[in-house]
Design a protein around this nucleic acid. Sequence first.
DNA 1: CATGAATGAGAGTTCATTCAT
DNA 2: GATGAATGAACTCTCATTCAT
Lengths: 212, 212, 212, 212
Amino acid sequence: MGITERKQKARLAMRTLILDTAMRLFLEEGFEKVTVRRIAGAIEYSPATIYLYFRDKNDILFALHAEGFDRFYRLQQTVLQVKDPWERLRMHARVYISFALENREYYDLMFIMRGPVEKLKAARDWSVGIRSYDFLKENIRDCMAAGYLPKTEVDVAAFAIWSFTHGMASLIIRQRCAMISPDLLSSVVDGAIDFMTARIEKGKMIGKGRRK
Amino acid sequence: MGITERKQKARLAMRTLILDTAMRLFLEEGFEKVTVRRIAGAIEYSPATIYLYFRDKNDILFALHAEGFDRFYRLQQTVLQVKDPWERLRMHARVYISFALENREYYDLMFIMRGPVEKLKAARDWSVGIRSYDFLKENIRDCMAAGYLPKTEVDVAAFAIWSFTHGMASLIIRQRCAMISPDLLSSVVDGAIDFMTARIEKGKMIGKGRRK
Amino acid sequence: MGITERKQKARLAMRTLILDTAMRLFLEEGFEKVTVRRIAGAIEYSPATIYLYFRDKNDILFALHAEGFDRFYRLQQTVLQVKDPWERLRMHARVYISFALENREYYDLMFIMRGPVEKLKAARDWSVGIRSYDFLKENIRDCMAAGYLPKTEVDVAAFAIWSFTHGMASLIIRQRCAMISPDLLSSVVDGAIDFMTARIEKGKMIGKGRRK
Amino acid sequence: MGITERKQKARLAMRTLILDTAMRLFLEEGFEKVTVRRIAGAIEYSPATIYLYFRDKNDILFALHAEGFDRFYRLQQTVLQVKDPWERLRMHARVYISFALENREYYDLMFIMRGPVEKLKAARDWSVGIRSYDFLKENIRDCMAAGYLPKTEVDVAAFAIWSFTHGMASLIIRQRCAMISPDLLSSVVDGAIDFMTARIEKGKMIGKGRRK
DNA sequence: CATGAATGAGAGTTCATTCAT
DNA sequence: GATGAATGAACTCTCATTCAT
């Protein structure tokens, strides 16, 4: 038993090593530079070795994809600390962005990159994504119930909100924000979230007037 | 002089031919099918000829990038038909999305793809993008002046609005909307724009009450 | 002694298991699908284990080669039921073809494939083949003795007859018979045997006449 | 014109060089050793160069296949010199064998090898083979008309005769004739042809008699 | 101006085989 | 006796790019 266990551990460690390395290459060199050979080279193994741990290149992408969604979901749960649904929704947005900016490679893989998706289409692994999306929708429903949001179609609202946060994340990650100076970025993001939500905060009617 | 001129014309014509063909391939076959060889083949020239007109493949992408922004800017101008600044802003969003969805490969190149940007960083060619961005900001300023939007930082507001529309466009283009049935997509997009803007339409103050 | 014996038995059993499995793969998936890995996988052992029982892949092929000749020889013996040497010879042909068609991969290995033979050249293992060949020659001698065949060199006659049957078998197995519809094949084969032998059936003397 | 012509010549020369080299490798090292890399290496070009002259590896095989049938057909025509249909048929056999033995690689490719056929199945290029087969059948018809052969189905007779010659050729080429000493080979082949045809030469009626 | 010819580099993948444990 | 882990050497094929002509 001890032996089996140790072996499984070693196996897992190797898988992790490969995945981490792949991720590092992603980050450092971009998607198209992530090749089986390069991964192997980086960990000083032969390319063939990679195939002992993953069926093919896509299998690596799948694994990273899943891992990303997993990390994201766990982080997302932290918003539950916030009781007020409206504040929780705002927190959702901030958490989303911070996941994206602190795990750029994962985020790219999960929500931007072309490659993996195409092969993933038929696969079942959207479930992990859906789970997070449902979690967001639950929050939206709470907001509607509490009168923070008009009672419209939840799916539409969720798509709108997701789009907004994804938009920020992906513009930043794919570097389309040359016009925003890097050190202002995070305050601009916060400002944008405020801008998008401020207007409907209870009472504080906007468009009308004040908002310091 | 006449000769020089004619030569320059011919040169330009060839560049245009190459760019158009590249774009056609983009649209018809997708990004990864656009290779120097294929472009050359499509116009029945040798690959080597391409290099007489463009330094390298990236140079072609740069040019398409610029062309995309040009087309976009022209389309964007059509919103000027709408006089009311608030409605004009909503129109901006719709025009943006429709450009994105009807010119997916251009949009991808302009706002999503990694490739061209990296080499472009040092280059000057963001001007065309900036121009469009300024145009949006102008509209936002009008909205603020007319009391449709709180008088906050224009840059922040612009980033928020751009992010929202870009989010929708890029989620769709990069196919992260498995959960939304394709034929509902366009109505969901419209719904999302409504959702994001409806609440502040004049008078109709929202957040307060419910919104039937 | 008992132990040694048991060990040898176990060793033989394993060899047999490997060979049977290799053959099954041959039959079910074709030659190029037979890899050491796949054999090992099919019997749920590690590839390395195979090498405890066979020096290398070719060694497996040798063994199958021998096994094929063995099976063939046994089948061949059934012609002894036929007493008349001429009919027995015809039976020889039919039995040959049917062995080939019902054990295509064995046949291929034994009489067509390049691989095993080359390494086998120096080896001794033609004996099993020779045995069958001698058996055929015996039949031919009987035919000559009985006046069914002219008393020519037996070796030549044997080669001619073998060539004829092998020709049919190998054309079919290697699929060079596109021109013959598959469901007619077996009747064409029978027809061909008749054609090659009929001409001398009693009375029906053919070509009888003229011929300068 | 002169330039175009010279270029075409050069192109053809290169194709020929590649084909010849492929053939040489076939002959010297066997089918599985014929790889694009090896061909390229042998002529001291880069592998990529091969692809300038042939679409893919199979394309090379196709070309050789076709070339082989072409050569064969041309050689086959020489039998027309023989007027007597029966002697012409015997000549057919001898010519067939000599083509096989003098062009072993081609013959192997055309009639034995597994690889090319599978991909070739759908292709049209059996026509060249059929042409030769029809030519043989014509001869058989002549023999039947002249009373040298019983008036049976031509297709069956052709298959029988082809099988016989192919059998000899392929046993020799694939080296299953260890039992026949190499320097006797050609006389054994001639003997076998005689054996298969002799029996009906005039007068010498064989098998004459009895046969229950 | 245009190109045919060529290539180096590299992609993903598979295989037979070895060896320390 | 058995094996998990590893690998070197191949494989086919594609691409952006260069250069002599």
